[in-house]
Simulated assay, not measured.
Amino acid sequence: MSEPWTIERICGSLGDPKLTQRFLSEINKAPAHRILTVFAKWARIAKNLEAAFDEDVVAAARRGEAPCDDLVDGTERLEQAAAQRNRSHGAA
């Protein structure tokens, strides 16, 4: 059985400072009657992100190791696609 979901575990599982900041902002600004709903939403997101990655790859990354030699960095391609989408939608 895995560890229970906590704010700290959700933050660690999101893996991106911007996502973590968004989660913390939402949980901190939520009115009392919505806190559990917001928490459940982000716990589900974090759970899905954890499930999306191979455990060996995640473990290697946490140790600061390269998980394998044949990974392709798609960052530039994704940034270019996002920029193109923004231009086609009239964003600056």
Rank of each mutant, 00 (worst) to 15 (best):
M1Y: 04
M1K: 08
M1T: 08
E3M: 08
E3G: 03
W5A: 12
W5F: 11
T6A: 08
T6I: 02
T6H: 04
T6C: 06
I7M: 02
I7P: 01
E8V: 06
E8Y: 03
R9P: 03
R9G: 03
I10N: 03
C11W: 00
S13K: 05
D16Y: 03
P17F: 03
P17N: 02
K18F: 06
L19C: 06
T20Y: 00
Q21V: 00
F23R: 02
L24N: 04
S25E: 08
I27P: 02
I27M: 05
N28S: 15
K29S: 14
K29C: 05
A30Y: 06
A32H: 05
A32Q: 11
A32R: 10
R34T: 05
R34A: 13
L36Q: 14
F39D: 12
A40W: 00
A43W: 03
R44L: 14
I45Y: 05
I45F: 08
A46M: 07
K47D: 15
N48M: 10
L49A: 12
L49G: 14
L49V: 13
E50H: 04
E50G: 09
E50L: 12
E50S: 09
A51H: 04
A51V: 05
E55C: 02
V57H: 10
V57L: 13
V58S: 09
A59E: 07
A60C: 02
A60K: 09
A61D: 06
R62S: 02
R62E: 09
R63C: 01
R63P: 00
G64K: 01
A66D: 11
C68H: 11
C68P: 01
C68N: 07
D69V: 07
D69F: 07
D69M: 04
D69Y: 01
D69H: 03
L71A: 12
V72E: 15
V72F: 07
V72P: 01
D73N: 15
G74R: 12
G74N: 14
T75C: 02
T75E: 08
R77Y: 08
R77K: 14
E79M: 11
A82P: 06
A82C: 11
Q84L: 15
R87C: 10
R87V: 07
S88D: 11
S88I: 04
H89R: 15
H89L: 14
G90P: 04
G90Q: 06
A91H: 11
A92Q: 10
